[in-house]
Nucleic acid binder design. Structure first.
Length: 917
DNA sequence: AAGTAGACTTAGTAGAAGCAAA
DNA sequence: TTTGCTTCTACTAAGTCTACTT
């Protein structure tokens, strides 16, 4: 198992940071974990990192253990007065002690085996268990760790996701209802009383707070349908308001405050339009509107429907039981959806096939083949002719001339042009997904019960558009009328429909680079920064609550601990007809295993069915709590936190800080970790080295957030290639070395390090390699000869004859014979012009190249299953990147792609090199 | 209190676009 | 040029979270 963690000396060093209880620590907000030096072997770290690393860790201060010490038995002791609950007597969670015992039995045993089960179940992706991240804090250590990993990882790995669907996936209701003895009391009381006392606290507070920032406010005004509609009016007055508004000047910091403004304002910003072309710099404006009204005028063309289905050529037909079927376009289209995928994994997936076939049959019933054939089995359907046709079409397309391609592109651009932009309050803004989703087969991820289901073609009748009252109503590009047209200026979508597969809502919004998205993005990061100010207190509180006598509070505290330390998602409840994935609040009994003394093993499928597998050392109290939460009557299938829901959790969070929700912790921890990791940037490194440090930091964050990608199927192959390349370099180095020794045998003594043979340079490889080289050389000579002749011919000169070529080939062969001798003798004659100095220099260069190649190889390995993009796009405050780029003088375009730069113009404008998160 | 609708953010991946090596 | 990747975008699924209903 993950040794790394396990070995860590202090219990939690890794994870548990700490902090929490200690008030003194301040500056360190983060989850950081201490740097546990030990776990990281220094050697592993790349050079630059090393240096950097030791620099910055001031966090050492973090005290780690204290909390644990505390936890002792406290239950009784700590009267959780704070909440008033105490008196109430909400139950008592009983002591840990007892619970311990009882639990010991069952849970301990089985859980203890930390070992992961291996089995596959899970996703198709690489089952690698990604090494988990470990707490953010741990990151540093982690770094080093990764290097080793391969092996280690392997051990850890395994995948089994263990998620067998629980026999009873019932939400633990049972437990709830009939709690065990202990629990009972707990539950009952808590529920009853709690409602009164306990919550009050929270609620009150919450209520009191004014909602602010973008997020909320809706409450007030909204009232169903009517609600929305008429909100736009206010604008005029407001505009003035703007000016008055005193606050918010300092953007960065103050911003949050500003949001409060209750007033609805919308301003149609001044100057009309010269700035038409310019982009609207909303971040330079004074406090913007509040959260309620989003626009005053809104013009757009809604969605672009895809072209109608074009039947396949008559000769392309699917076959059923050997018979070619002539399908009407309606059913042929559906057959084609599957036919195009027959080489993908989906087509092999039982559920996918089942769902597809059910829908396909229904379509066939309505639009049967001309040949009176009843299609009864998918296995007898042969889509290959269709598949091959599609492949041919692809080829054709690829083979088109540049001009043809260009013409097609132009036509497409022209068609799409009207949809690219919309006009909001007189400003031009880019629309995001204006193309109506084409029909196809639903590609649900993981074990989605609906995967393979037919997704219908959208018609105007399916779509509701949202547009300004005075705007001209767009006309659909295919026949039909919109399902509805509304003018709700409290929302930002242009069009909306309900998709038939899951009944989910789909929307057309503006692009990521739009002002609306930019503003809310910025607000998100500001919220996360605000958390910095509260996090110490929050941690202290939940640490305290870990011992609460009120079960609900205790669970909430424990959940929060995980959310904060492990960056888990909130974990809303999900329905039966969705993939069985969980987040923190929805963790079930089987997802968490205990391994004494204080390790908790998480193994579950999270969002997108990505496996989260991690062994974590936790505070003793947390360990006890989990034991308690898994105690007796509970079993596989039951909720771990049966008294907690995301709503409850968020209500509590909101009471600690307005606007705070579970997801803010992810943003905060990600950005915080990133900023901290960037301290490892080599001050005097090359740009490439700096970027490498940046990427390493990015990677830490990605690991923290469990952002994965499937390893490409040619990964192994390409890795082997790279390894061969390295060996080829080593081969060259060897030749240089041997020449040197021929020149001056004394060098062996003088520089003993040169006398050592290159690693993995066995005779076998050398022979193979030389053969390859020979072949290549011969081939090249041949080609050169041909080429030269063509040229000579064109010039009208006379061609070289074959003899010449043969001679040349012979020469080459002779040279290689030389090599063979050298191989045997291990001696290499110095090549012409070789001198000791030159050779030494060349060897040095070769060493460098080898080292670089090795580093590259290692980097690729480390990144093969980690996705950096998601955290860059969604979790890392872009201002950190901008500031870093300025500070270290790295061009921003090396860090942000074009679309990212379009998404974060505000960050570029706002952050200077001293900016900190 | 629990379930649902609604709106918006976050997620991995397929395929297009770029780019470097052959 | 063509090939063989790597990188970037587009796409759309899958979350979060609030407000509304029942």
């Amino acid at each position: 198992m993950s040794e790394s963690i396990a070995n860590a000396p202090e219990p939690m060093a890794v994870v548990a940071p700490d902090t929490t209880s200690n008030p003194t620590i301040q500056a360190t907000h983060a989850p950081q974990v201490e740097d546990q030096d030990d776990s990281m072997s220094e050697d592993d770290k790349p050079l630059m990192k090393k240096q950097a690393a030791n620099g910055g860790n001031k966090n050492k201060k973090r005290i780690g253990g204290d909390s644990s010490s505390e936890d002792d038995k406290p239950l009784s002791k700590k009267p959780r007065v704070s909440k008033g609950t105490a008196n109430k007597k909400r139950r008592v969670v009983d002591s840990d002690s007892d619970s311990d015992e009882s639990e010991a039995g069952p849970s301990v045993k089985k859980e203890t085996q930390p070992t992961p089960k291996t089995n596959g179940t899970s996703k198709p992706r690489s089952s690698t268990s990604r090494k988990p991240p470990t707490s953010p804090a741990q990151s540093e250590s982690d770094l080093s760790e990764d290097e080793k990993p391969l092996a280690k990882r392997a051990s850890a790995k395994t995948n089994g996701n263990g998620n067998g669907k629980p026999a009873s996936r019932t939400k633990a209701k049972p437990a709830k209802k009939e709690p065990s003895d202990d629990e009972e009391s707990l539950s009952e009381q808590s529920s009853a009383s709690s409602s009164e006392d306990d919550k009050p606290l929270a609620k009150k507070k919450a209520a009191a707070k004014p909602r602010q920032s973008t997020s909320s406010t809706k409450s007030a005004s909204t009232s169903t349908a009517a609600k929305k509609k008429v909100k736009a009016e206010p604008k005029s007055e407001d505009s003035d308001d703007d000016d008055d508004v005193p606050l918010a000047k300092g953007k960065a910091k103050t911003t949050t405050a500003k949001d409060k403004k209750p007033v609805v304002k919308k301003e149609k910003k001044v100057k009309e339009e010269e700035d038409d072309e310019e982009k609207y710099k909303w971040w330079e404006q004074e406090a913007e509107g509040d959260g309620e009204v989003k626009w005053t005028t809104f013009e757009h063309n809604a969605v672009l429907f895809p072209p109608p289905y074009i039947p396949l050529p008559k000769n392309v037909k699917m076959k059923y039981d050997g018979v070619a079927l002539t399908l009407p376009p309606e059913s042929e289209e559906v057959a084609g959806f599957f036919g195009a995928m027959i080489e993908t994994d989906h087509a092999q997936d039982a559920k996918f096939r089942e769902n597809f076939f059910k829908d396909f049959k229904a379509v066939l019933d309505k639009y049967p083949p001309k040949e009176n054939v009843k299609v009864k089995s998918l296995d007898k359907c042969d889509f290959k002719p269709m598949f091959e046709h599609f492949e041919r079409e692809k080829e054709k397309k690829k083979a088109m001339t540049k001009d043809e391609k260009k013409a097609i592109k132009e036509a497409k651009d022209k068609l799409e042009a009207p949809y690219l932009f919309c006009v909001v309050d007189g400003r031009k803004e880019k629309v995001g997904n204006f193309r109506a989703e084409p029909p196809g087969l639903f590609r649900g991820r993981g074990e989605h019960p609906k995967k393979g289901t037919l997704k219908h073609r959208l018609r105007p009748e399916d779509i509701i558009i949202n547009i300004g009252k005075d705007a001209t109503e767009p006309i659909p590009n295919i026949p039909g009328k919109w399902k509805g047209v509304q003018h709700d200026n409290t929302v930002t979508w242009l069009a909306h429909w309900k998709e038939n597969v899951n009944g989910n809502a789909k929307y057309v919004f503006l692009s990521a680079g739009s002002s609306w998205k930019g503003q809310s993005d910025r607000a998100k990061f500001e919220k996360a920064r605000e958390l910095i100010k509260h996090v110490d207190k929050i941690r202290k509180d939940y640490t305290e609550d870990l011992k609460s006598k009120v079960m609900a509070d205790r669970q909430r505290a424990t959940a929060l601990y995980f959310i904060d330390r492990l960056a888990l998602r909130a974990g809303n409840e999900k329905g039966e007809d969705e993939a069985d994935t969980v987040g923190c609040c929805s963790l079930r009994y089987e997802h968490v295993t205990l391994s004494p003394p204080n390790t908790v093993v998480f193994d579950f499928l999270g969002k997108d069915s990505m496996r989260f597998f991690q062994e974590v050392k936790v505070d003793a109290q947390v360990f006890k709590n989990i034991k308690l939460f898994k105690a007796e009557p509970k079993q596989k299938g039951d909720d771990l936190f049966d008294r907690l829901s995301t709503t409850l959790l968020n209500k509590h969070l909101n009471s600690m800080m307005p606007g705070l929700t579970a997801k803010v912790f992810r943003t905060y921890n990600a950005s915080w970790t990133f900023q901290k990791q960037l301290k490892n940037t080599p001050k005097n490194g090359t740009v490439a080295e700096k970027i490498a440090a940046y990427n390493t930091a990015n990677r830490e964050v990605a690991i923290l957030c469990n952002h994965q990608k499937s390893v490409s199927k040619n990964y192994e192959g390409s890795k082997a290639k790279h390894e061969d390349k390295i060996r080829a370099l080593k081969y060259q180095r060897m030749k240089l070395r041997l020449q040197l020794f021929s020149l001056d045998p004394k060098m062996k003594k003088k520089q003993p390090e040169l006398a050592e043979d290159e690693s993995d340079m066995d005779e076998d490889f050398i022979e193979r390699h030389e053969t390859e080289l020979l072949e290549k050389a011969l081939d090249n000579a041949q080609k050169k000869h041909e080429k030269d002749n063509i040229k000579l011919e064109e010039e009208g000169s006379k061609k070289k004859d074959k003899k010449e070529l043969d001679e040349r080939l012979k020469e080459i062969k002779d040279e290689f014979k030389e090599l063979k001798k050298e191989r045997k003798s291990k001696k290499v004659e110095p090549r012409r012009g070789a001198t000791e100095e030159k050779l030494i220099e060349q060897i040095g260069k070769m060493d460098e190249r080898i080292a670089t190649a090795k580093v590259q190889l290692g980097d690729r390995e480390k990144l093969k299953d980690v996705a950096l993009g998601t955290s860059k796009i969604n979790y890392i405050d872009p201002r950190i990147t901008v500031a870093w780029a300025k500070k270290y003088d790295v061009p921003l375009e090396k860090l942000f792609s074009k679309t990212l730069r379009e998404k974060f113009p505000w960050a570029e404008a706002e952050a200077n090199k001293g900016w900190i998160f």
